[in-house]
């Protein structure tokens, strides 16, 4: 998150440079996840050998982790609301909670991956393994990056270097975080709940 020099001047459209950059990035990310989801849908139910998704998926477990990520979006936006009214304590609490929920989600995914692996699913075992691990892996990588950035923000906040005037930093990270969350909303439905 760079401190763009343009923040010194207002822009021709009145839109913040960095916010526009983030939205452009997210718009292009729709094509990235679109491509990954398309590959999953193309090969849905096409695996010639097992293990198959219906044997592996643990819907209650995944529902909990989907819920965790969803709630992290709520805490993220509360962190933004906190910094916008200058509530430093609230900012720290909600940033911390969001990062924690994010880490919880990642741990859940790590557990799920190892569990599936133990039951014989790997990147090379069949089309399901290939498309599932790559799609959810890409998403997990995005969450991981988000957690790292959230922790960086938290450190800045704890050292008093994230003031009300820098709320844009939190807003930008928030946009990224919510986007990663909505991608999971799509994955949770298309991959887990709708089975062939």
């Amino acid at each position: 998150m760079s401190h763009a020099p343009a923040a010194l001047e207002t822009t021709a459209t009145g839109i913040d440079n960095r916010k526009l950059l983030m939205w452009l990035f997210l718009a292009s990310e729709t094509l990235l996840f679109g491509s990954l989801i398309a590959a999953y849908l193309l090969y849905r139910g096409q695996s010639v050998v097992g293990p198959y998704p219906e044997e592996l998926f643990d819907i209650p477990f995944t529902s909990v982790s989907a819920f965790v990520l969803l709630m992290s979006s709520v805490t993220m936006v509360l962190a933004l609301a906190a910094i916008q009214r200058g509530d430093q304590r609230g900012l720290r609490i909600w940033l911390f909670t969001t990062a924690l929920l994010g880490m919880l989600f990642i741990s859940g995914q790590a557990f799920e991956f190892t569990e599936f692996n133990r039951e014989g699913l790997s990147l090379s075992s069949n089309l399901f393994g290939t498309t599932f691990f790559v799609l959810t892996g890409f998403h997990g990588a995005h969450v991981t990056v988000g957690v790292l950035v959230l922790l960086s923000l938290l450190v800045m906040a704890l050292r008093g270097r994230l003031t009300r005037s820098q709320s844009m930093n939190v807003e930008l990270v928030g946009l990224y975080w919510h986007f990663v969350d909505v991608v999971w909303i799509a994955i949770f439905t298309l991959v887990y709940l709708i089975q062939p």
Partner: peptide, 8 residues
Amino acid sequence: LVGGLMLA
């Protein structure tokens, strides 16, 4: 966002 989604 909508443009990206619709294109994809």
